[in-house]
């Protein structure tokens, strides 16, 4: 087994995990599979890029883009999701697809379709490890992505477990009507979830931007991979989303080594189909039996 590729796979996977985490968060609370998720992050990368041109440091631009992301998430939730709440899941899917297109078109109109560079948040000499005889080269940015993923996972876990709002989010994700009757402002909870999730999308987009370059279609790949990771891990489970992302990264890297690079994009779509056929609740999702 090629240890080198596994480690690099985990690194790539951490980007997928961040995206998957956001997609699952939105799904759990509002029951929507959000295909516009990646592109919402893409818009905020452009905002960060604008801030960079104002001589802000990369980290400063990243931190400033987070509130912008929250605002965007809030707007999309308030003006499309909330008024359309009663429509079917299928229709909702189409709505998120059209938001994805609208955002992409908007970005082309405002910033153009050409590729732009984005600096790494931390630059410097990459780390070189020797593990089991193999050499592993890790960029500082990748290590940052891994640590951010670990940090976010821990924070979200604690937030959902221990805080009043976290409890309200969990309650809303289980039963919205009952939560309202408990005095939970579910509309506010939904907004907050979209804000947090969009900030996650921005995080993945900005961390990945030095590799993907900034363009209106920069997040398509992450969107698909994040979705695959969520399916792989089980759409209901946050931990599943994280594990699914990391696993997907590893699988992809091994596939590109042993089968060839051109199989890489196919494999994730294949995984979606296979998982849905064999284990629809995902590798880490629990089968929720219905009591009769």
């Amino acid at each position: 087994m090629n240890v080198n590729q596994i480690i690099l796979g985990i690194v790539t996977g951490s980007y997928y995990s961040i995206v998957a985490l956001g997609i699952v968060l939105i799904y759990k609370v509002s029951g929507i599979v959000n295909f516009a998720f990646g592109n919402m992050g893409m818009i905020t990368v452009y905002i960060a890029l604008q801030l960079l041109s104002l001589k802000l440091s990369p980290v400063g631009a990243f931190l400033a883009a987070l509130p912008a992301a929250a605002l965007l998430g809030c707007i999309v939730e308030r003006f499309t999701m909330r008024p359309l709440k009663k429509v079917s899941h299928g229709s909702m899917l189409i709505v998120t697809l059209s938001i994805m297109m609208i955002l992409e078109g908007l970005a082309v109109q405002i910033w153009g379709a050409d590729y732009k560079g984005f600096p790494e948040l931390i630059s410097g000499k990459p780390f070189l490890f020797r593990i089991f005889g193999g050499l592993v080269l890790l960029r500082r940015q990748d290590i940052l992505a891994l640590s951010i993923l670990a940090g976010i996972s821990l924070i979200i876990f604690l937030f959902l477990r221990t805080t009043k709002i976290g409890l309200a989010i969990r309650a809303t994700s289980e039963d919205e009507e009952a939560s309202m009757l408990m005095g939970v402002d579910t509309a506010k909870i939904s907004s907050m979830t979209w804000m947090i999730a969009t900030a996650l999308s921005t995080t993945a987009a900005i961390l990945g931007a030095p590799k993907t370059y900034v363009s209106p279609s920069m997040m398509i790949h992450y969107q698909i991979e994040g979705f695959t990771a969520a399916v792989l891990g089980g759409f209901e489970s946050m931990a599943g989303a994280i594990m699914g992302g990391l696993l997907l990264g590893v699988i992809e890297n091994l596939v590109s080594i042993y089968l060839g690079n051109e199989f890489k994009p196919t494999i994730s779509l294949l995984i979606i189909v296979i998982v849905l056929m064999i284990k629809p609740e995902g590798l880490f999702g629990k089968k929720r039996g219905v009591r009769v």
């Binding site: 009043k164 409890l167 309200a168 969990r170 309650a171 289980e174 039963d175 009507e177 009952a178 939560s179 408990m182 005095g183 939970v184 929720r288």
Partner: peptide, 22 residues
């Protein structure tokens, strides 16, 4: 209409939502 997959304690605590002033 309980929150089926939460513990009884968590269910009760959600009920306290409006009273929790933190």
């Amino acid at each position: 209409n309980l929150f089926k997959y939460m513990t009884v304690l968590d269910n009760l605590l959600v009920g306290y939502h409006t009273k929790a002033n933190a």
